[in-house]
Amino acid sequence: MSTTHDIDTIQRKLQDARDQIRKRIVGQREVLAQLLVCILADGNALLESNPGLGKTTMVRTIAEVTDLDFSRIQNTPDLMPSDITGTEIIRETDQGRDFVFEKGPVFANVVLADEINRATPKTQAALLEAMQEKQVTAAGETYQLPRPFFILATQNPIDQSGTYALPEAQTDRFMLKILVDYPNYEEERDIVEMFTTGTQQVPVEKVLTNDEIQAAQRHVRDVPIADDLQDRAIRLVRRTREEDTIEFGASPRASMALVLASKARAFLFGRSHVASEDIEALAAPVLRHRILLDFRAEREGQTADDVIQSLME
């Protein structure tokens, strides 16, 4: 059984990992924290940002400092499900020809699915099924995906032509929807200086092992939460189903996601219990892709984040 000393060690290493990532990623502290929360909560994230904001660099850096396998899938309309999950190929052996399953890029600890809305619904469904089930079935055989398994899917908020928007039922499977905004002037200047002088890539150290991340995932589920805070999270999700400005509210899966993500955030920041600030910080990332605003709210220029903020007050 783990001791409190083990927990202290993992939490200290998580802090070291964040410090290492910050050596390469300028700013975006909240985005980075939300990505790590997703990994610790054994969830997946949908990341929405304009191109050129360092999504790939960020995810690749996380994989580097955490000793996790990394793969990237660039989604296109002609991408087939087997291109992601893998396929059986005929391989010549000494005993003759044999069908061998060739694992696809989804068999990695950290998978970056770039521009997921450019893949066809069939391919999207295959990817999201793997994400949900943590396994892939091909030719009657079931293959377990490596643990931990984390998909970071990105989509571009502009240039929607030739895309297949993810249906609400699919987006509900992402624990968080993370918005990446442009850096401020100072951050952008640092980025320019960092990547236009000296070596192209700032080196980072590997500070967390695969086993430690899985241990952290187990500890996260045991993080105690006060009854009133848990009730607050549940009430918040339920209010999205009663609010006039929301056409479709969030499901109970959102309640679970909010509580679990809050536990992960508490663990990430070295605490041993969930605080109200965890719920407040994660309410929007958990709920913004799970609610559909009423047309009147949209007409008034309200965003999902605005409505969620008003529900929390």
């Binding site: 059984m1 783990s2 001791t3 409190t4 083990d6 927990i7 202290d8 500890h219 045991d222 993080v223 105690p224 939460i225 006060a226 009854d227 009133d228 805070l229 041993s272 219990h273 969930v274 605080a275 109200s276």
Partner: peptide
């Protein structure tokens, strides 16, 4: 406040995980 309230609820739920123990010690 929050830590104490959480510990109270954890004790009421008879939680004895490592995280709960860490909370109690804190």
């Amino acid at each position: 406040a929050e830590a104490l309230r959480t510990a109270r609820d954890a004790i009421a739920d008879e939680q004895d995980s490592a995280m709960a123990a860490r909370l109690y010690e804190d």
